[in-house]
C-alpha cells in the first residue's frame, strides 16, 4: 500500500526534497565513520567492515536516489538477479583460489 502511494507520489510530483537530504546526510556520516574506523585495527575484519559500510551506502543510493523503492517490483527482481550473478562470480573465484 505504502509502495503504491510512493509510486503515485512519484508520478504526481509529490516527491519530497527532505528524504534526499536525509539520505545524503546518512551517506556523509557513513563515509566519516569508515574514514575514522581506519585508525582502529580490526585486523582481518578491516576490509569486511569497509565493504559492509559500502553495501549500506549503495543500498541507500539504489533505493532512494535511484527510486528502486517506488519502482515496479520487476526492477528490484532484475537488480537482484544481476547482483546474484556477481556474487556467484566472487564465490566461484574465491572457492577456486582457496583450494589451490
Amino acid at each position: 500500500m505504502s509502495q503504491n502511494n510512493l509510486n503515485q507520489d512519484l508520478q504526481h510530483g509529490n516527491v519530497s526534497y527532505g528524504l534526499y537530504f536525509l539520505v545524503w546526510f546518512a551517506l556523509l556520516v557513513l563515509t566519516g565513520l569508515s574514514v575514522t574506523v581506519v585508525g582502529i585495527d580490526f585486523g582481518k575484519f578491516t576490509v569486511a567492515i569497509a565493504m559492509i559500510v559500502s553495501c549500506v551506502k549503495s543500498y541507500l543510493v539504489l533505493t532512494v536516489f535511484m527510486h528502486l523503492k517506488s519502482e515496479n517490483p520487476v526492477f528490484r527482481i532484475f537488480v537482484g538477479v544481476a547482483l546474484f550473478f556477481l556474487v556467484v562470480s566472487f564465490a566461484l573465484l574465491f572457492s577456486d583460489y582457496s583450494f589451490m
Partner: peptide, 21 residues
C-alpha cells in the same frame, strides 16, 4: 567522496524539482 555524494544529491533534487514544475 564528499563531492560525488553531494553531486548525487543535487542530481536527485533536480529530478524532484522538474516534477514540481
Amino acid at each position: 567522496t564528499f563531492i560525488l555524494l553531494t553531486s548525487s544529491l543535487t542530481m536527485a533534487l533536480s529530478i524532484a524539482a522538474i516534477q514540481k514544475e
